[in-house]
C-alpha cells in the first residue's frame, strides 16, 4: 500500500510547491495561472480523499471560475502592478508573518495528529436515514434533506453576493449590461470553440445534475458548467450579457430559491416540518429543487464573474 502513499506524498509535495510559488511569485498574472493549476491539483487530492463530489466542485468552482476571475482581474490591474508591489513590507515583518503563519500551521498539524482515533462520524446515521430520501448519493441526501437549511442559505449567499456586486455599479450604468463588449473575429478559433463546446457542455451538465441523485454530481457542479458555457459564448461575442434590469433575469435568478422555499413550506402540512419531504415524494421533489437551482446558480455564477454593469443597455 505504500505505493499509494508514495503517490499521495508526491501529490502533496506538488500541491505545496505550486501554492508556495503562487504566494511568492512577483507577477500577479503568473499567480493567477498558478492558482488555476493549484485548483486542479487540489481536485486530485479530493479524489484521493474519496470525496468525488467535492473534487467536482473544487475543479469547477475553485480551479475554474475562481481562476477566470483572478486572471481577468490581474490583466486589468497590470498597469498599477509595479507601484503596488513597492508597498511590500520589509524583511522583518515578512519574517514575523512567516513565523506566525508557521506556528499556526504547526499548531494545526499537532491537533490533526491528535484527533481521536476511532474518528466520530455521522456516516451510520446518514446510512440509517437515507432510505427516506430515496437518494443513492449520501452527500446530496445531506445537502438537500438532513442539512437542507445550509443549502437554502447557500443559494441566498449567492444572491447576496450578486446584489453586493451590483451595488458597485456606477450610477450612470445602472440597468446596463455587465462586463465589457466582447468582439472577436466571427469565424476565428474562439468563435468556433464557442459554437462547438456549449452543446456538449449542456448535455454534460444535465447529466451531472441527473446523476447527482445517486452518484457524485449535483446542482452546484452542473450550474458551474452551464455558467462556464454561457461565459464562453459571451466572451466569444456570440451572445451578450442581459441588462440587469430585465424582469425575466431577476425571475430566473430567484427561481431556484423560490422553488426550494415553496417545497420547504409545503413540507409543513404534508410532512410535519419545514424542509421535510412527504413520504415517497422525496426524490422527485429533490430533483425538482435541484433543476430549478441549477438554472439560478448558472446565471448567478456567470453574472458574478462578469461583475457589475460597465456599459449602458443599447437594447
Amino acid at each position: 500500500m505504500n505505493l499509494a502513499l508514495l503517490f499521495d506524498g508526491m501529490l502533496v509535495v506538488l500541491i505545496l510547491a505550486v501554492a508556495v510559488w503562487t504566494v511568492t511569485v512577483r507577477d500577479s498574472f503568473a499567480a493567477g495561472i498558478g492558482y488555476a493549476v493549484y485548483g486542479l491539483l487540489l481536485a486530485l487530492a479530493w479524489v484521493r480523499l474519496a470525496a468525488v463530489d467535492a473534487a467536482l466542485t473544487e475543479a469547477a468552482i475553485g480551479g475554474g471560475l475562481t481562476s477566470v476571475l483572478m486572471i481577468r482581474a490581474t490583466v486589468r490591474l497590470r498597469a498599477g502592478e509595479a507601484a503596488a508591489r513597492a508597498a511590500t513590507p520589509g524583511p522583518l515583518p515578512r519574517l514575523l508573518a512567516a513565523l506566525l503563519g508557521g506556528s499556526v500551521a504547526a499548531g494545526l498539524a499537532l491537533v490533526v495528529l491528535a484527533l481521536p482515533d476511532p474518528a466520530p462520524t455521522l456516516a451510520p446515521q446518514v446510512a440509517e436515514h437515507i432510505a427516506t430520501t430515496g437518494l443513492g448519493n449520501a452527500v446530496t441526501a445531506v445537502l438537500l434533506s438532513f442539512r437542507a437549511i445550509d443549502t437554502l442559505l447557500e443559494a441566498v449567499v449567492l444572491i447576496y453576493a450578486l446584489i453586493a456586486v451590483w451595488t458597485l455599479t456606477p450610477d450612470r450604468f445602472w440597468g446596463g449590461r455587465p462586463g465589457p463588449k466582447y468582439e472577436t473575429d466571427p469565424n476565428g478559433m474562439l468563435a468556433y470553440l464557442a459554437r462547438l463546446l456549449p452543446p456538449i457542455g449542456i448535455v454534460v451538465a444535465v447529466y451531472v445534475l441527473w446523476v447527482g441523485a445517486d452518484l457524485p454530481g449535483g446542482k452546484f457542479q452542473a450550474g458551474t458548467l452551464l455558467a462556464a458555457m454561457w461565459l464562453l459564448a459571451i466572451m466569444a461575442g456570440l451572445t451578450e450579457a442581459p441588462p440587469i434590469s430585465r424582469r425575466w433575469l431577476r425571475g430566473v435568478l430567484v427561481a431556484g430559491t423560490v422553488v426550494f422555499l415553496a417545497i420547504g413550506f409545503a413540507g409543513v402540512p404534508l410532512a410535519g416540518a419545514f424542509l421535510a419531504y412527504p413520504e415517497g415524494f422525496a426524490k422527485p421533489l429533490i430533483v425538482a429543487i435541484e433543476a430549478a437551482s441549477m438554472l439560478s446558480i448558472a446565471f448567478t455564477l456567470a453574472l458574478l464573474v462578469l461583475g457589475p454593469p460597465e456599459r449602458r443597455d443599447q437594447a
Binding site: I15, L16, A19, V20, V23, A97, A98, L100, G101, G102, V104, A105, A106, L108, A109, V112
Partner: peptide, 9 residues
Amino acid sequence: AVLVGLGLY
C-alpha cells in the same frame, strides 16, 4: 495545515 499557514502568510 501547511496550506493554511502559507495562506495566512
